[in-house]
Amino acid sequence: MLPLVLVNIVVILIPSVSSVIYSFTDWSGIGNATFIGFDNYTTMFGDADFRNALWHNILWTIFFLIVPMAMGLFGAYALTRVRRFRLLFRVAYFIPYIVASVVSASIWRSLLSPDTGVGKILGVNFLGDRNLALGSVAFVNNWAWWGFLVVVFLASMQSINPNLYEAAAMDGAGPTRQFFSITMPSIRPTFAFLGLMTIIWSFLSFDYVYILTQGGPAGSTDVLSTLLYRNAFGTLQAGYASAMGVVMALISGIVVAVYLWIRKTRNWEI
C-alpha cells in the first residue's frame, strides 16, 4: 500500500495537480503563466476541434466495446469447446498483443498502403481517405488488442465449474444457450471490469493515432489525447492542453462513478 501511494503521489498526483492549476492559466508551455479563470474551459466548448476529437473518442469507444469484445468472447468461448490445439490458438491470438505499437504500426502502414499490400489490391487508401482513416487506425489497434481479451476471458471461463455445463447440457441447452445462461453470468466481474477499462482506454488512446496519422488527414483521426499533445507542444497552448486533460479526467471519473454505482446497486464484486 505505502510504496504505491508514494510513487503514485510523485508520478501522478503532483503532475495532475499542477495540470489542474495550469488549466486556469494561459501558459504557453514556455515561460510565465497568467491566471485567466475558466477561459480555457469556455473556449473548449466552442472549439470545433475539441468537439471533433471528442466525437472520435466516442466512436472509438463504441468500436472497442463491440468488435474486440465480441472477438474476445467468441474466441475464448470457442476455445473452451475445442480440445485440440487450444494452446496453439491461444498463443497465436496473444502474439499481436506482444508486438510493440511502433512495430505494428510499421507492419500495418505497409499492409494498408496504396502502393503495396492490401490497399493496392483493393485500390483503397485506408489512411489517406478521411472517411476511412479513423476506422483503419482502430482496426490496427484492435488487431493488437483482441487477443489479450481472448486470453483473459478464457482464463475466467476456465474457472467455471464444468458441472454447470454438464447439467445444462443434460437439460438440453445448446452451446449458445449455455453461453448466455452460464458463461456470461459467471464471468461477469471480468467482463464488467474489461468493459470499464475499454471505455477508459478508448478515451486515452494515443499511440496508434500518433504513429500512423498524427490526427490527420484534416483532423479525421484526431482524438482528445493527440489534440492535447498538439496543443501542448505544437501550438504552444499548454494551459489549454491542461484544461483538456482535466476534462478527460473528469470524463473517466464519471465513467468510473457510474460503474461503481452499478456495482453497488447490483452487489457485484469487481
Binding site: V11, S16, Y229, G253
Partner: peptide
C-alpha cells in the same frame, strides 16, 4: 489509470 499521461 485513466488520465491522459501526455499532460504529465
Amino acid at each position: 489509470s485513466s488520465l491522459p499521461t501526455q499532460m504529465f
